[in-house]
Simulated assay, not measured.
Amino acid sequence: MINMAKAKYLEVASELKKRIEDGVYSKQEPLPDQEAFAKEFNVSRLTVKKAFDGLERQGLVYKQSGLGTFVAGEIPIKSQIDAPANAFTGLQNQLGKDKIKSKILHFSVEFPDEQMQRNLNLKANEPIYNIIRLRVYEDHPFIIEHTFMPIKLVPDLDEKILHSSIYNYIHQKLHLKFGHAYRKIRAQKPDQYDIKYLDAKADDPMLELEQIIWLTNGQPIEYSVSRNRYDARDYVLLDNNRF
Results as ranks from 00 to 15, higher is better:
98 D>M: 11
67 L>M: 13
75 I>R: 05
61 V>E: 00
55 L>H: 01
64 Q>M: 13
60 L>C: 05
107 F>W: 03
108 S>R: 10
60 L>V: 02
88 F>H: 07
104 I>A: 05
70 F>C: 08
65 S>V: 12
74 E>I: 12
86 N>T: 14
104 I>Q: 06
86 N>L: 07
80 Q>L: 15
100 I>R: 01
96 G>F: 15
63 K>L: 11
97 K>V: 03
99 K>A: 14
101 K>H: 09
89 T>V: 15
85 A>L: 13
97 K>W: 07
108 S>D: 13
70 F>M: 09
82 D>S: 07
70 F>G: 02
90 G>A: 09
74 E>S: 06
56 E>V: 05
91 L>H: 07
89 T>M: 07
97 K>A: 07
102 S>W: 00
106 H>P: 02
101 K>W: 02
80 Q>H: 15
109 V>L: 10
73 G>T: 12
83 A>T: 14
63 K>I: 09
92 Q>Y: 08
68 G>A: 11
55 L>I: 06
57 R>C: 00
62 Y>A: 02
59 G>M: 02
64 Q>W: 07
86 N>V: 11
57 R>Y: 03
55 L>G: 00
97 K>M: 10
65 S>A: 12
62 Y>P: 02
79 S>Y: 07
81 I>T: 09
104 I>F: 03
98 D>L: 11
81 I>W: 03
64 Q>Y: 09
70 F>H: 05
65 S>R: 12
108 S>L: 06
64 Q>D: 09
94 Q>L: 14
93 N>Q: 12
75 I>A: 05
61 V>L: 06
88 F>G: 01
96 G>W: 14
73 G>D: 12
87 A>G: 12
87 A>C: 14
80 Q>E: 15
95 L>N: 08
80 Q>F: 14
94 Q>S: 11
82 D>K: 03
92 Q>A: 07
96 G>A: 14
88 F>Q: 04
64 Q>N: 13
66 G>V: 12
65 S>N: 15
59 G>A: 05
79 S>E: 15
74 E>G: 07
99 K>L: 13
93 N>P: 04
58 Q>Y: 01
76 P>C: 10
90 G>S: 09
87 A>Y: 01
105 L>D: 00
58 Q>A: 01
63 K>G: 12
76 P>N: 08
77 I>S: 11
100 I>G: 00
91 L>V: 08
66 G>N: 11
75 I>C: 04
67 L>K: 15
86 N>Q: 11
75 I>L: 06
104 I>S: 05
95 L>K: 11
98 D>P: 05
57 R>M: 04
79 S>M: 12
81 I>K: 09
91 L>W: 06
96 G>Y: 14
60 L>T: 00
85 A>H: 04
102 S>Q: 03
101 K>M: 09
100 I>E: 00
76 P>E: 11
55 L>P: 00
84 P>F: 03
83 A>G: 09
90 G>M: 05
62 Y>F: 10
82 D>G: 04
103 K>E: 13
